[in-house]
């Protein structure tokens, strides 16, 4: 039996004023699956995540999560249903300490495996810095806080927006090395990336966006480099 479908995006459009950013994007994520969304700058990757997270209005049935249409559900209710976001550029709360950032992430009190202690077990360095202001951490550590903050809401689906952005390759590898432990807790993952190598390595299924449309999709192993670069650059 095929795994249960957790997220289904069908024929999604998105607009910023007069500018249309997404044209009929469809995507599907099964429970426990890791899906990568790749594409160049401005391809619509972040817009897709913002739409799923409820920060952009959409047709109610364009986004179905866990059997319920959430296209027009505001972001703070989407979290309560079990969708968490690691936003692009980390976007920690600068006036909060590391621990407060994590606690605010868990303030809805959704039950599940992730607690303050579990996050500290996953990223031990954060436990040492728990009382420091979030902006005093290195970029990689801040990214760990951002991931921890999202996990604290015990999501069924975690959306990661450009977690490699602005980080040294060794730090990126380190953070990607922790993802399997996160997925092992039974959640699904959508990774939005420009770093194709990391994305293909971590995901089982890949969607490539180009100018707001899905240009290519398939199992990560089945796509050739030529096909990807063609879809990526539109050549």
């Amino acid at each position: 039996m095929a795994p249960r479908e957790l997220l289904k995006v069908s024929n999604l459009d998105a607009h910023y004023g007069d500018f249309q950013a997404l044209f009929g994007v469809s995507l599907s994520v099964a429970a426990g699956q890791v899906v990568a969304v790749i594409g160049a700058n401005g391809a619509g990757k972040s817009t897709l995540l913002r739409s799923i997270a409820g920060l952009m209005p959409a047709r109610p049935d364009a986004i179905v999560f866990d059997g319920a249409p959430i296209g027009d559900t505001p972001a703070y209710r989407v979290v309560a249903r079990g969708v968490a976001v690691v936003p692009e550029g980390r976007r920690l709360f600068p006036s909060l300490s590391v621990e407060e950032n994590l606690l605010v992430g868990g303030q809805l009190g959704r039950p599940g495996p992730w607690t303050l202690q579990r996050v500290y077990d996953l990223f031990p360095v954060l436990a040492e810095r728990r009382n420091q202001p979030a902006p005093s951490l290195s970029g990689g550590q801040q990214q760990m806080v951002a991931i921890g903050r999202a996990l604290m809401s015990n999501p069924k689906l975690l959306l990661c927006d450009e977690i490699s952005l602005g980080l040294a390759p060794i730090v990126v590898r380190d953070i990607y090395a922790r993802l399997p432990a996160i997925v092992a807790e039974g959640l699904s993952l959508v990774i939005v990336e420009q770093d194709i190598v990391q994305a293909l390595h971590a995901a089982s299924h890949v969607y490539c966006l180009q100018e707001g449309r899905v240009a290519l999709s398939g199992a990560a192993g089945s796509l050739t480099r030529q096909a990807i670069s063609a879809a990526y650059f539109g050549m």
Binding site: A53, G54, L55, P74, A75, Y76, V79, A80, A84, V85, P87, R91, L92, F93, P94, S95, L96, E100, L103, V104, G105, Q107, L108, R149, S153
Partner: peptide
């Protein structure tokens, strides 16, 4: 308090505060 955390978080980053479930 948690209320104070919510105040400060919303003041810092209103959009991200929604992503952790705070209704601004």
């Amino acid at each position: 308090t948690a209320l104070g955390r919510a105040f400060r978080a919303t003041s810092d980053e209103p959009a991200v505060a929604q992503l952790v479930g705070l209704d601004n």
